[in-house]
Design a binder for these strands. Structure first.
Length: 170
DNA sequence: TCTCCGATTCACT
DNA sequence: GTGAATCGGAGAA
């Protein structure tokens, strides 16, 4: 087992997103309990030109986090009810992020953040043990299926059709 | 300040 | 298959 370094995330999101499949998301709760979850589904959001990406509107207070260097945690509230967990990729000033859509036993981004007790308090923090959330590599070589992204009908045909969702094959 | 709407989920017809 | 819940960010004025 090895803990993924910051360097792992400082690459193109299209490399990072599929390679996170089969890795282990580790959460240390407020009461020091530690739980590990296999990552089963991710999605890539890639830069200002990607109309499905929040950063397509340019650099704002909200998207500022995505311009940080890879390994930063981006938390975002959707529909006033659910927190989305993203991991920023690439170097500084390149707005890319991986959305964690699914983990073992929790199918759905809203459910997994609930299970992990994720909320805005860790927005902008770095992915590492000190902050209670990190990723471990157990050397699993997963079989990956690609698909189109979900919930981005506003982005237009060209971007809806990108096969930027990555799913672990059972 | 005010209005619009979303990287979702769940209950109900 | 359809619609409600619910709130912060972005853009308009």
């Amino acid at each position: 087992m090895s803990v993924l370094s910051q360097q792992f995330f400082q690459k193109d999101v299209l490399e990072v997103a599929p390679s996170l499949i089969g890795k282990c998301l580790v959460r240390k709760y407020a009461n020091n309990t530690i739980r590990k979850f296999l990552i089963t589904e991710t999605e890539a959001y890639r830069g200002e030109e990607d109309l499905a990406c929040h950063a397509s509107k340019g650099r704002t207070k909200r998207t500022e986090i995505m311009y940080q260097k890879g390994g930063t945690i981006y938390i975002y509230l959707i529909y006033g009810m659910y927190w989305m967990l993203n991991i920023v990729t690439e170097k500084e000033n390149i707005p890319q992020a991986v959305l964690i859509r699914g983990i073992e036993n929790y199918n759905g981004p809203g459910k997994l953040t609930k299970a992990l007790e994720i909320n805005k308090s860790i927005n902008g923090k770095t992915l590492c043990k000190r902050n209670g959330l990190w990723v471990e590599d157990y050397g699993i070589i997963p079989k990956i299926t690609t698909a189109t992204r979900i919930g981005i009908n506003y982005a237009g045909k060209e971007w809806i059709e990108k096969p930027w969702r990555f799913i672990l094959n059972e």
